[in-house]
Design a protein around this nucleic acid. Structure first.
Lengths: 229, 229
DNA sequence: CTAAGTCCAATCATCCTACAACTTTTCAAA
DNA sequence: TTTGAAAAGTTGTAGGATGATTGGACTTAG
């Protein structure tokens, strides 16, 4: 079998270079890119070629151009943008169901695969929850709560699961906050998270799934109640 | 709150039009687009503007251009392409775990929400499985099997779940076939699918989840065994 | 000094023409 | 029929010109 000869067009080469510069953090989110004229010289391509490359990345959601002002970095993950757009097309309930599906799988895998680093990270998040709870700081509590969930997903040692969860949770954040603030989730989740962590620590898969199902169903009920108002 | 004034650039307008023409099926996958010269006239824009629009869609994976030949439609879903790329970056096992997470959630939701149309569709798929099995046609059986799973996911009445499942299953297809052909999955899945359908018909959520877990774990074992060879 | 308005330079948006590189078709010669 | 060269059609790249928008510098009236 012969390898298909593949010449990358100049545009595609420039696109790849810019993507790398963004992914590597050389251009951070919010940064201004150099002007077209300068980029032309740096990449040694014509204006058209450069503009086609930039336009491709603008449409992908990585860049944003504003006439008269310049081009800035908007995001560092094309996949995140694509998922974000899909979430926007869907209802909150639909998205939440997908997120919970991932979370349930993550809990199961985490209970099997978690290592000491994972357990330490999760324990730390729970302590953050606790201290925020004692201070009565709702916002800080919510942030710590989300961090705990992310730590659990990370403990599943499945990068794809982690990325999906991350990019689906992001646009849901405001809805999550709404539910938590409106209800008495504050005290409730404190305990169940601790028990969930214990189950994962003991590698008790069934218990872990059971706890996740508990707060998933509870969360679902709360959403329904709020949406009915 | 004032509405953000939003002037869409000519390029973006052309992009949207082309996207619509593809989504609506006016240009099918594999079709050649008209040449640049003609599209310039039809959209009434300059060559640069048109080319930037096309380039954006090429990078998104909807189109493919070949110098000297033309431009063809490659895919109808930008989200599908993005997901596909993500899957390619991940291992088969990782992807499978995500897919199974979705399938488990789908089974649960389907057991709750399925309507008569869903049940009919699933029954039909099972009969296809059966007839393929009797004929001994492995390929046809696999296709029918996948159709059954998709029908179940559809019965969850969650569009986002359905799309995710669809686009994740697609690039996995060859791996799935490999497992099924290599092992004795042929006879095994015939029975468990029937029982799963019965559980969903009776709206027995626990039984449905249980059956899904059964063949999920079985499938996982088979994959492991094959990968070790 | 402050605040409002004006002007200007920088920047992206669009259009135009020209040529190069590649592919497909056509057609004539072997 | 097969081969190969020519021709026509298509996308790729380059460079220049003008318009539209923005943000900051500057000016001026209070």
């Amino acid at each position: 079998m012969l390898k298909k000869t593949e010449r990358l067009s100049l545009v595609e080469q420039v696109v790849i270079q810019i993507e790398h510069l963004i992914e590597s953090g050389h251009w951070q989110i919010g940064d201004h890119l150099p002007a077209e004229m300068q980029l032309m010289k740096e990449f040694d391509v014509s204006r058209n070629t450069l503009r086609e490359a930039i336009r491709a990345l603008v449409h992908a959601g990585l860049l944003e151009t504003k006439q008269g002002s310049g081009t800035i970095v908007k995001s560092s993950s094309a996949f995140g943008v694509a998922l974000h757009r899909q979430v926007e097309k869907s209802s909150i309930m639909e998205t939440l169901e997908v997120r919970l599906a991932l979370e349930r799988e993550a809990a199961q895998l985490a209970a099997i695969r978690r290592d000491d680093v994972d357990l330490e990270a999760m324990t730390e998040c729970i302590q953050l929850c606790k201290s925020a709870s004692e201070k009565g700081d709702v916002q800080e509590f919510i942030q710590a709560d989300i961090l705990f969930h992310k730590a659990m997903v990370k403990a599943s040692h499945n990068m794809m699961l982690e990325r999906l969860y991350e990019h689906i949770t992001e646009p849901l954040q405001s809805s999550i906050e709404e539910v938590m603030v409106a209800d008495d989730y504050f005290n409730y989740s404190k305990e169940i998270h601790y028990e969930l962590l214990e189950a994962i620590k003991k590698q008790d898969v069934h218990a872990a799934i059971s706890y996740v199902n508990q707060y998933i169903n509870d969360f679902r009920e709360k959403i329904k109640r709020i949406q009915e108002d």
